[in-house]
Write a protein that binds this DNA or RNA. Structure first.
Lengths: 188, 188
DNA sequence: TATTGTTATACTCTATAACTATA
DNA sequence: TATAGTTATAGAGTATAACAATA
């Protein structure tokens, strides 16, 4: 597929927003680069064969790829989708607040929001109390675009559920949440 | 921190190497952008709250971040680590083969390998039978650097194991593998 | 002074295309 | 002609810094 796919840019450890892990200078053995060696079955990697982190990485990439296949060719990229989701959930929020929610600097959102506005998917109104900020809200077209995207997402989720298995879904989700919470706690 | 951390670049659907999922034009709702809303606890996202794909994404990012914290400040980035791992496992392989294994174009590896060579971590010898290609192999320093990185990785794995729990580790890993295999199969 | 959003810049990662030297 | 590796170029995503308008 395309260039820039779901790679994970790993950078040095620096203080970033928060979520995106960037790889510090160290490096992410388990998550590291997208070693599809294991999955592809071409070459084998000793150490990584049993690594949870590595498999978590592969599973996430595979899931991401599968979603991308289903979503098809809309021109909405991930950043757009994220913005739509959060704005729908929190109509009226500011650009800075949105950035905080999805872990992006406000300057990063400027082109994204402008594009969504250009397409008529969102409206920006100067906030009543503070005329420096904009109150973001979806237009009807924006809600529709999000709904379409959401349907693709639902199909994707069904595929994941089928692979995980009904009996294991709850446990699997619980384990993921445990990892998320535990690792975030470790970070602080 | 630094700019560019571990972001995930999502691009449009174009023909890429292969593994990296890149987000097609559609978009990856679940995996999409790094919505740390859920985790951070700031805002809430309706639909994504129960999404396996989304949690997979968050868990992977958290794991990645945790690894980066442990790995510390070596100057080896993810791409470097990946190359070292694969070369150690397959001494003598060519640059093109390495690229295939980790899902990167050969042109992408040129600077990475040059850097590793410059640091004395790997040697490139013209292949005996085919003088167009190089046979890649780690130097003693390269093996040591990899060992250090591996130790960080091991500590990271222990942390993950602890969070997952002894009783669930096998099941969790099995589920991840099922997802990986199932989604890859779906791709073909 | 501090904050919101915009603009100008810069940087990483990755890719495609074209080029050189082999095959 | 086809392949290995290199170089040139491009593009996506993100960030920091500086600026204007507003608090």
């Amino acid at each position: 597929m395309h260039p820039r796919e779901g790679k994970r840019s790993l950078a040095q450890p620096s203080p970033k927003t928060s979520s995106h892990p960037a790889a510090g200078p160290g490096e992410p053995p388990p998550e590291g680069p997208a070693l599809r060696v294991l999955s592809g079955g071409a070459l084998r990697l000793g150490l990584l064969d049993r690594s949870l982190g590595f498999h978590l990485r592969l599973a996430q990439e595979a899931s991401f790829a599968a979603f991308a296949r289903r979503a098809g060719r809309s021109e909405l990229r991930p950043g757009h989708f994220a913005a739509l989701v959060v704005i729908e959930a929190h109509p009226g929020l500011s650009q800075t607040a949105l950035g905080g929610a999805i872990g992006r600097d406000k300057s990063t959102l400027t082109p994204t929001l402008r594009e969504l506005e250009r397409r008529g998917l969102l409206r920006r109104e100067r906030a009543a109390g503070d005329r420096r900020s904009y109150a973001l809200m979806l237009t009807e077209a924006g809600r529709e675009a999000l709904a379409t995207l959401t349907r693709s997402a639902a199909a994707h989720e069904e595929a994941l559920d089928a692979l995980v298995g009904d009996g294991d879904r709850a446990a699997f989700l619980a384990t993921l949440r445990r990892l998320i919470a535990g690792l975030e706690g470790e970070a602080r």
